[in-house]
Design a protein around this nucleic acid. Structure first.
Length: 250
DNA sequence: CGCGCAACCTGTCTGC
DNA sequence: TGCAGACAGGTTGCGC
Protein backbone atom coordinates (compact mmCIF):
# COMPACT_ATOMS: atom_id res chain seq x y z
CA UNK A 1 0.00 0.00 0.00
CA UNK A 2 2.67 2.53 0.83
CA UNK A 3 3.46 4.61 -2.22
CA UNK A 4 5.54 7.72 -2.07
CA UNK A 5 2.88 9.80 -0.27
CA UNK A 6 2.21 7.10 2.31
CA UNK A 7 5.90 6.57 2.96
CA UNK A 8 6.32 10.30 3.35
CA UNK A 9 3.36 10.39 5.71
CA UNK A 10 5.08 7.84 7.87
CA UNK A 11 8.50 9.44 7.66
CA UNK A 12 7.61 13.09 8.14
CA UNK A 13 6.02 13.06 11.59
CA UNK A 14 8.53 10.51 12.85
CA UNK A 15 11.65 12.39 11.80
CA UNK A 16 11.62 15.11 14.48
CA UNK A 17 11.21 12.50 17.19
CA UNK A 18 14.24 10.45 16.22
CA UNK A 19 16.73 12.75 14.54
CA UNK A 20 19.74 13.66 16.69
CA UNK A 21 18.92 10.96 19.18
CA UNK A 22 21.16 8.03 19.96
CA UNK A 23 20.17 4.43 19.26
CA UNK A 24 21.00 2.30 22.23
CA UNK A 25 20.48 -0.92 20.37
CA UNK A 26 18.59 -2.44 17.52
CA UNK A 27 17.12 -5.92 17.65
CA UNK A 28 15.99 -7.88 14.61
CA UNK A 29 13.21 -10.20 15.73
CA UNK A 30 12.59 -11.65 12.28
CA UNK A 31 15.88 -12.65 10.61
CA UNK A 32 14.26 -12.66 7.20
CA UNK A 33 13.94 -8.89 7.45
CA UNK A 34 17.57 -8.33 6.55
CA UNK A 35 18.40 -11.45 4.55
CA UNK A 36 20.88 -12.42 3.33
CA UNK A 37 22.73 -10.41 5.95
CA UNK A 38 22.56 -11.74 9.49
CA UNK A 39 20.65 -9.81 12.16
CA UNK A 40 23.97 -9.05 13.81
CA UNK A 41 24.81 -6.79 10.86
CA UNK A 42 21.88 -4.56 11.77
CA UNK A 43 22.49 -4.87 15.47
CA UNK A 44 26.15 -3.93 15.14
CA UNK A 45 25.34 -1.02 12.85
CA UNK A 46 22.79 0.49 15.18
CA UNK A 47 24.43 -0.03 18.55
CA UNK A 48 25.23 3.30 20.15
CA UNK A 49 25.00 5.35 16.97
CA UNK A 50 23.35 8.70 16.67
CA UNK A 51 20.58 9.19 14.13
CA UNK A 52 21.52 12.06 11.86
CA UNK A 53 18.48 12.01 9.65
CA UNK A 54 15.41 10.05 8.67
CA UNK A 55 15.30 10.35 4.90
CA UNK A 56 13.41 8.96 1.94
CA UNK A 57 14.18 8.00 -1.65
CA UNK A 58 11.34 6.63 -3.76
CA UNK A 59 9.47 4.27 -1.46
CA UNK A 60 12.54 3.58 0.66
CA UNK A 61 13.08 5.07 4.10
CA UNK A 62 16.67 5.71 5.11
CA UNK A 63 17.84 5.90 8.69
CA UNK A 64 21.08 7.83 8.34
CA UNK A 65 23.36 7.16 11.27
CA UNK A 66 26.63 8.70 12.29
CA UNK A 67 29.86 7.29 10.84
CA UNK A 68 28.18 7.24 7.42
CA UNK A 69 26.09 4.17 8.21
CA UNK A 70 22.79 3.92 6.33
CA UNK A 71 19.94 1.62 7.28
CA UNK A 72 17.73 1.41 4.18
CA UNK A 73 14.23 0.09 4.78
CA UNK A 74 11.34 -0.80 2.51
CA UNK A 75 7.82 -1.15 3.87
CA UNK A 76 6.55 -3.05 0.86
CA UNK A 77 2.79 -3.29 1.30
CA UNK A 78 2.03 -3.67 4.94
CA UNK A 79 5.12 -2.41 6.69
CA UNK A 80 5.08 0.47 9.13
CA UNK A 81 7.62 2.44 11.09
CA UNK A 82 6.42 3.98 14.29
CA UNK A 83 7.32 5.24 17.70
CA UNK A 84 5.72 3.02 20.29
CA UNK A 85 6.66 0.73 23.10
CA UNK A 86 4.99 -2.32 21.65
CA UNK A 87 2.95 -3.12 18.60
CA UNK A 88 1.69 -6.21 16.88
CA UNK A 89 3.88 -7.78 14.17
CA UNK A 90 7.06 -6.10 15.31
CA UNK A 91 10.00 -7.29 13.17
CA UNK A 92 12.66 -4.87 14.33
CA UNK A 93 12.90 -2.94 17.56
CA UNK A 94 15.26 -0.02 18.05
CA UNK A 95 15.70 1.41 21.51
CA UNK A 96 16.43 5.11 21.78
CA UNK A 97 18.74 6.22 24.53
CA UNK A 98 17.28 8.24 27.36
CA UNK A 99 13.56 7.87 27.78
CA UNK A 100 12.74 4.36 26.71
CA UNK A 101 11.24 5.31 23.38
CA UNK A 102 11.35 2.66 20.70
CA UNK A 103 11.23 2.81 16.95
CA UNK A 104 9.41 -0.26 15.69
CA UNK A 105 9.29 -1.74 12.22
CA UNK A 106 6.07 -3.70 12.04
CA UNK A 107 4.82 -5.80 9.17
CA UNK A 108 2.08 -8.43 9.33
CA UNK A 109 2.96 -9.92 5.98
CA UNK A 110 6.72 -9.92 6.40
CA UNK A 111 7.39 -8.51 2.94
CA UNK A 112 9.25 -5.54 4.35
CA UNK A 113 13.03 -5.53 4.27
CA UNK A 114 16.04 -3.68 5.51
CA UNK A 115 19.68 -3.49 4.52
CA UNK A 116 22.72 -1.85 6.05
CA UNK A 117 24.89 0.13 3.66
CA UNK A 118 28.23 1.52 4.67
CA UNK A 119 29.11 4.82 3.11
CA UNK A 120 27.13 7.31 1.11
CA UNK A 121 28.60 5.95 -2.12
CA UNK A 122 27.26 2.48 -1.43
CA UNK A 123 23.88 3.97 -0.65
CA UNK A 124 23.75 6.03 -3.82
CA UNK A 125 24.88 3.05 -5.84
CA UNK A 126 22.07 1.01 -4.33
CA UNK A 127 19.48 3.59 -5.29
CA UNK A 128 20.94 4.40 -8.69
CA UNK A 129 20.75 0.73 -9.61
CA UNK A 130 17.02 0.53 -9.02
CA UNK A 131 15.42 3.97 -8.96
CA UNK A 132 14.62 6.63 -11.52
CA UNK A 133 14.12 10.31 -10.73
CA UNK A 134 11.93 11.59 -7.93
CA UNK A 135 8.64 12.65 -9.50
CA UNK A 136 8.26 15.59 -7.14
CA UNK A 137 11.66 17.02 -7.99
CA UNK A 138 11.71 19.92 -10.44
CA UNK A 139 13.66 18.00 -13.05
CA UNK A 140 10.75 15.62 -13.55
CA UNK A 141 9.50 17.51 -16.60
CA UNK A 142 7.39 16.53 -19.57
CA UNK A 143 10.55 16.49 -21.69
CA UNK A 144 12.27 14.14 -19.27
CA UNK A 145 9.25 11.87 -19.28
CA UNK A 146 9.09 11.94 -23.06
CA UNK A 147 12.73 10.92 -23.33
CA UNK A 148 12.14 7.98 -21.00
CA UNK A 149 9.05 6.86 -22.89
CA UNK A 150 10.51 7.12 -26.38
CA UNK A 151 10.36 3.92 -28.35
CA UNK A 152 8.87 1.79 -25.59
CA UNK A 153 5.96 -0.48 -26.26
CA UNK A 154 5.15 -1.37 -22.67
CA UNK A 155 1.67 -0.36 -21.48
CA UNK A 156 1.81 3.08 -19.96
CA UNK A 157 0.62 1.79 -16.61
CA UNK A 158 3.41 -0.79 -16.43
CA UNK A 159 5.82 1.97 -17.34
CA UNK A 160 4.59 4.16 -14.48
CA UNK A 161 4.99 1.27 -12.05
CA UNK A 162 8.61 0.55 -12.91
CA UNK A 163 10.64 2.21 -10.20
CA UNK A 164 13.74 2.46 -12.36
CA UNK A 165 11.85 4.95 -14.56
CA UNK A 166 9.98 6.96 -11.94
CA UNK A 167 10.55 6.35 -8.26
CA UNK A 168 7.59 6.12 -5.94
CA UNK A 169 4.51 5.58 -8.12
CA UNK A 170 2.50 2.51 -7.17
CA UNK A 171 -0.74 0.99 -8.29
CA UNK A 172 -3.06 3.56 -6.75
CA UNK A 173 -1.24 6.59 -8.10
CA UNK A 174 -0.61 5.09 -11.52
CA UNK A 175 -4.36 4.58 -11.90
CA UNK A 176 -5.10 8.02 -10.57
CA UNK A 177 -2.56 9.74 -12.81
CA UNK A 178 -3.88 7.96 -15.90
CA UNK A 179 -7.42 8.83 -14.99
CA UNK A 180 -6.53 12.47 -14.62
CA UNK A 181 -4.67 12.45 -17.92
CA UNK A 182 -7.48 10.55 -19.66
CA UNK A 183 -5.11 7.90 -20.96
CA UNK A 184 -5.92 4.21 -21.22
CA UNK A 185 -3.58 2.11 -19.04
CA UNK A 186 -2.82 -0.36 -21.82
CA UNK A 187 -1.74 2.27 -24.30
CA UNK A 188 1.88 1.65 -25.36
CA UNK A 189 3.80 4.43 -23.66
CA UNK A 190 5.94 5.23 -26.70
CA UNK A 191 2.89 6.16 -28.77
CA UNK A 192 1.69 8.96 -26.53
CA UNK A 193 1.46 12.35 -28.14
CA UNK A 194 3.27 15.30 -26.69
CA UNK A 195 0.16 16.79 -25.12
CA UNK A 196 -0.64 13.45 -23.51
CA UNK A 197 2.86 13.21 -22.08
CA UNK A 198 2.35 16.64 -20.57
CA UNK A 199 -1.02 15.62 -19.13
CA UNK A 200 0.54 12.46 -17.75
CA UNK A 201 3.37 14.30 -16.05
CA UNK A 202 0.85 16.66 -14.47
CA UNK A 203 -1.34 13.72 -13.51
CA UNK A 204 1.52 11.97 -11.72
CA UNK A 205 2.64 15.08 -9.89
CA UNK A 206 -0.85 16.23 -8.93
CA UNK A 207 -2.03 12.85 -7.71
CA UNK A 208 1.10 12.39 -5.61
CA UNK A 209 0.65 15.85 -4.15
CA UNK A 210 -3.02 15.22 -3.49
CA UNK A 211 -2.09 11.99 -1.73
CA UNK A 212 0.50 13.71 0.41
CA UNK A 213 -1.92 16.47 1.33
CA UNK A 214 -4.70 14.10 2.23
CA UNK A 215 -2.60 11.90 4.46
CA UNK A 216 -0.18 14.49 5.62
CA UNK A 217 -2.99 16.28 7.40
CA UNK A 218 -2.00 16.80 10.99
CA UNK A 219 -3.38 14.26 13.38
CA UNK A 220 -1.97 14.02 16.84
CA UNK A 221 1.57 14.91 17.57
CA UNK A 222 2.87 11.44 18.18
CA UNK A 223 2.38 8.37 16.11
CA UNK A 224 -0.05 6.14 17.93
CA UNK A 225 0.13 2.36 18.14
CA UNK A 226 -1.42 1.81 14.78
CA UNK A 227 1.00 4.20 13.21
CA UNK A 228 0.60 7.44 11.41
CA UNK A 229 -1.75 6.05 8.85
CA UNK A 230 -4.93 6.35 10.67
CA UNK A 231 -8.45 7.28 10.08
CA UNK A 232 -7.76 9.15 6.90
CA UNK A 233 -7.46 6.34 4.50
CA UNK A 234 -9.64 8.79 2.63
CA UNK A 235 -9.01 7.51 -0.85
CA UNK A 236 -8.34 9.90 -3.60
CA UNK A 237 -11.51 9.91 -5.56
CA UNK A 238 -11.41 7.31 -8.23
CA UNK A 239 -8.94 4.55 -7.62
CA UNK A 240 -11.76 2.28 -6.75
CA UNK A 241 -15.05 3.72 -7.90
CA UNK A 242 -18.27 1.97 -6.99
CA UNK A 243 -18.45 -1.08 -9.16
CA UNK A 244 -20.33 -0.67 -12.36
CA UNK A 245 -20.37 2.02 -14.93
CA UNK A 246 -17.48 4.31 -15.62
CA UNK A 247 -18.31 7.59 -13.90
CA UNK A 248 -17.02 9.53 -16.84
CA UNK A 249 -18.33 7.61 -19.80
CA UNK A 250 -20.99 5.40 -18.40
C1' DC B 1 17.50 -5.42 -23.72
C1' DG B 2 12.61 -5.08 -23.01
C1' DC B 3 8.69 -7.05 -21.46
C1' DG B 4 5.48 -10.34 -18.87
C1' DC B 5 4.69 -12.96 -15.05
C1' DA B 6 5.21 -15.98 -10.91
C1' DA B 7 6.62 -15.87 -6.26
C1' DC B 8 6.86 -13.93 -1.84
C1' DC B 9 3.05 -13.56 2.53
C1' DT B 10 -1.07 -13.31 5.36
C1' DG B 11 -5.15 -10.42 6.66
C1' DT B 12 -9.46 -9.24 4.75
C1' DC B 13 -13.01 -9.33 1.60
C1' DT B 14 -16.36 -12.02 -1.48
C1' DG B 15 -19.43 -15.50 -2.73
C1' DC B 16 -21.74 -19.52 -1.90
C1' DT C 1 -23.64 -17.96 9.81
C1' DG C 2 -19.52 -20.34 8.32
C1' DC C 3 -16.15 -21.52 5.28
C1' DA C 4 -13.20 -21.78 1.25
C1' DG C 5 -11.15 -19.27 -1.99
C1' DA C 6 -9.87 -14.91 -4.22
C1' DC C 7 -7.56 -10.77 -3.70
C1' DA C 8 -4.32 -7.19 -2.43
C1' DG C 9 0.17 -5.16 -3.92
C1' DG C 10 5.95 -3.66 -4.39
C1' DT C 11 9.82 -5.88 -5.76
C1' DT C 12 12.84 -9.54 -7.42
C1' DG C 13 14.19 -12.86 -10.52
C1' DC C 14 13.42 -15.80 -14.31
C1' DG C 15 11.90 -16.96 -19.08
C1' DC C 16 11.06 -15.62 -23.67
Amino acid sequence: MPNLPEVETIRRPLAPHVERRVLERGEVLDPRWCEPAPPSAVEDATRGRRIERLGRRGKYIVLELEDDVHLVMHLRMTGNLLLAHDAPYTRVRMELAGGGDRVLFTDPRRFGTGVVLLGVDARDEYFDARLGPEPLDPDFTADALRAMAAGRRAPVKAFLLSQDRIAGVGNIYADEALWRARIHPLRPVGTLRRTQIEALRDGVVESLEAGSDARGAPLDDLPHPHGPRGPFQAPIPLHRPPRGACPRRG
